[in-house]
Nucleic acid binder design. Structure first.
Lengths: 341, 341
DNA sequence: GAGGGCGGTGTAAACCCTTTCATCGCGCCC
DNA sequence: GGGCGCGATGAAAGGGTTTACACCGCCCTC
């Protein structure tokens, strides 16, 4: 009977050479613990048989997977930038990074969370602006896995965090519009109900207005969902509602593009009639016409630093509890002085 | 001495109840093989102790991980769409999908490939338009893991494939421009050196011109890298070089946006002076001003079908060797009749 | 020449789970 | 009342690797 053609294991390699599996394992993992000759023979046999170690077995034994997950609420270019940074750091640290999305769906969050709790990954980078990984936070008796929170602090646990100061970023933006001469400055907020980030940006907006003694336009309702379409709709509503603002600060770039489209659709011009400013510095804003003035949130940098901290956590090294990365105003073509010179 | 506080295992649960680990395992995995009472007790203890099964151990035993990888050459919104489709299909099939990027870096491709070969995942969806997962394809004696190729067939192995007919898509685009009255139709190709997809689109362009007895502009060199910047540069070169075309067919949407920017920068208007058409139907084109006329490649659909096929492969069921998904012209504002009416 | 150190190798346990096979008790049937 | 089937459980093997420990020559030293 023909031997069934399964994948070769370390035992097959050992048998082919008349060695023990321990020696083969050592030849591969700790080259200097075996003779040069043995190592050469092992490598040859490995090549010849097409042997690959079973990572599952290895991880099970070592109790470490060298894999980390990045968990993001949805598919968005912005989160991709964060991922990019994580990936870059991880590579230098010998980790593999894998990406999962929750779609703000509790069940899916649970599942990803369980993957880590169940040893499929060593740690987790939560790129979220919303809620806990489980509907109700777990009982404290159940230890959390190693987690670093990127972008925005979470309120359901005290975790190491790399974030931007979204409140200050928003305030800077509005201050900038003010410095251009604008006094009627509206705001299109994000999903303030679910996103602390959106709330912080709203707060920054209010704080800036207050600092300049201006009236804020608070008739905007719940805000958009950080998507282009909701930005469009919000701007449309804004144009129909009351006195037209001369400038709009929008809670992220994507909604800002939507807002510009709505303004154009209404037969107005940006920045001639209305200045528009976003936050994030996403690609879509950089290449739009007019190119979007925005506040840059260094997504890749946030990802990179998060991974570095997660590495320290996993190694039991001391780490910074909270890192706040700086934001920066990027002036492009969607804003202009008021009144127009 | 205090017992070290490691994660509870199935043994801990069993001991806490005076049951055997077999029963606990069954209570969790095959609920109807145990008494109602036993199951209730087990679930209670699991909850109380915070037990989570170790997926590594489970997979090792079962020889199946229920994880598949999506491997893409780079981070791009287009690949995200494919991923989205894969993810959706996978969810209904009980698989977890994880995403990895190669950056066209042979070493990284190897690493991801090894993850699958090493049992960390059951299969692979290769979203690639470029080369084999290893610098030189492996010896045929070394079996390939289950792979489905999405988007574009590969030439180094005979693998199940879900693809669009890029050649026909390009031909359709040029035919459409022809039907608008354009005769001087230029092409900005993708990286024809490394991407069969770029080559196919170039071929479609040539075929269309030939069918209409037109001269093709072949002075474009190696083409862009499917990025906005290279599209900009290519268009700039095109404008400086010879007689100005009345229409440009660009090998993907991102480069097409770059091309439009270059045209605008040169003081010309789209589509008034030059019509521009892309391929893919990416978001960036949909929301641009002018909105981009393009040929839609149903990325999510490709991803979905790829995953379905991979599932069949993994189950040993029969599957379609090659699926060709239809493309579709989407007319927006970046194209106009010539001469202008 | 006996003891000690040392480099290289083998043996076997451990990692945590699933699953086959055996066991056991119980009710049922003739 | 004995055999049988059946449902629930337990014992143990097995999955592929790493690694602590034991072993075995060998050379060196006194």
């Amino acid at each position: 009977m023909v031997k069934t053609n399964r994948r070769p294991t370390i035992t097959d390699v050992a048998n082919a050479l008349g060695l023990s599996i321990a020696t083969v394992s050592r030849a591969l993992a700790k080259p200097d613990m075996v003779t040069d000759e043995t190592r050469a023979r092992v490598l040859e046999a490995v090549e010849r048989l097409g042997y690959r170690p079973n990572l599952l077995a290895r991880d099970l034994r070592r109790q470490v997977s060298k894999v980390v997950f990045v968990v993001a609420p949805r598919l968005s270019p912005f989160f991709l930038d964060v991922f990019q940074g994580v990936d870059q750091a991880a590579r230098t640290m010998g980790y593999t990074v894998l990406l999962g999305f929750t779609d703000r769906n509790g069940e899916r969050e649970e599942a990803l969370y369980d993957q880590v709790l169940s040893n499929r990954a060593d740690g987790l980078i939560l790129v979220t602006s919303s809620r806990a990984p489980s509907p109700e936070p777990r009982k404290p008796s159940h230890r959390l896995p190693p987690i670093v929170v990127a972008l925005e602090a979470v309120d359901w646990a005290n975790l190491p965090t790399v974030r931007a100061d979204h409140r200050a970023a928003a305030k800077d933006a509005v201050d900038y519009l003010y410095s251009l001469g604008h006094r009627a400055i509206a705001h299109i907020p994000g999903p303030v109900g679910t996103s602390p980030m959106a709330r912080n940006r709203l707060e920054g907006y209010r704080a800036a207005l207050a600092a300049h003694g201006l009236q804020s336009s608070e008739r905007l309702g719940e805000g958009g969902q950080f998507t282009l379409e909701t930005g469009y709709a919000a701007m449309q509503a804004l144009l129909q509602e009351g006195p037209r603002p001369t400038a709009v600060f929008v809670a992220n770039d994507e909604m800002a593009i939507g807002a510009i489209q709505a303004i154009k659709a209404a037969g107005l011009r940006v920045p001639h009639d209305i200045s528009v400013m976003g936050v994030d510095d996403q690609r879509i804003g950089r290449s739009y016409d007019p190119a979007l003035t925005t506040v840059r949130v260094p997504a890749a940098d946030i990802g990179y630093r998060s991974m570095v901290i997660l590495g320290k956590v996993l190694n039991g090294e001391p780490y910074e509890e909270t890192v706040v990365v700086p934001t920066e105003i990027i002036v492009r073509q969607s804003t202009a002085p008021y009144p127009a010179p």
